[in-house]
Computed example of a mutant assay.
Amino acid sequence: MAGASREIDDSRMSVGMMHSASGQVLATMDGLQNRLESVVEGAVSAIRHRPSARSGLDLPATLHGVAAAAVPVRVVSLDPLGACLRMERPLPRGSHGTLEVPGLPPVPVRVVGQGDITRLALLQDKQAGAWQSSLIAYLAKLESEAA
């Protein structure tokens, strides 16, 4: 009988410790969620207000390295951080390749979103700064031609 009582007490203690640990995990997860929401809100705000963004485009381009052959695409939005494309077949999220837009140097990209529009993120490499400078000049040229 004493052995059973001891096992019950040990079980209660173990349950109490697990309950306490789960409470700590929950509190930590809440804190992480709040931080993540703050980071996302900041990123979305920065994207909405970033300079040199250009949407409403319809430029021909080619995406290399994400499929067996070069993929023809239409660029509908372009900025120093990435691009939005229209294409016939979606590409797997996380695919890496090179985007070539006539008038700009090739740039390494990663597929970050799919839907009606494929979203690409510019991969930050040694040429990223040069590409971003070229893009700003390219967008300024498009703007002046449209005016």
Rank of each mutant, 00 (worst) to 15 (best):
M1T: 12
I8E: 06
I8C: 03
I8V: 13
M13H: 12
M13S: 14
S14T: 12
V15A: 14
S20D: 12
S22H: 11
V25H: 11
A27L: 07
A27R: 11
N34M: 14
N34F: 11
L36G: 07
E37Y: 07
S38L: 15
S38D: 14
V39P: 06
V39A: 04
E41A: 15
S45W: 01
S45I: 10
I47T: 15
R48Q: 15
P51M: 05
S52L: 14
S52K: 14
R54E: 12
R54G: 10
G56Y: 06
D58L: 05
P60K: 09
A61S: 07
T62F: 00
G65V: 01
G65K: 03
A69Y: 10
A70W: 01
V71P: 01
P72G: 07
P72A: 05
V76L: 06
S77C: 07
S77G: 12
S77M: 06
L78M: 02
P80G: 02
G82C: 01
C84Q: 15
C84V: 10
C84N: 12
L85D: 13
R86P: 09
R86M: 11
R89S: 14
R89W: 11
L91E: 01
R93D: 04
S95I: 00
S95Y: 00
H96M: 10
V107N: 00
V109L: 00
R110I: 04
R110P: 03
G113Y: 02
G115E: 06
D116N: 12
I117A: 12
I117T: 14
T118K: 04
L120C: 05
L120N: 08
L123K: 11
Q124C: 06
D125S: 05
D125T: 06
W131I: 02
S133D: 15
L135I: 10
I136N: 01
A137P: 08
Y138A: 02
A140M: 13
L142F: 06
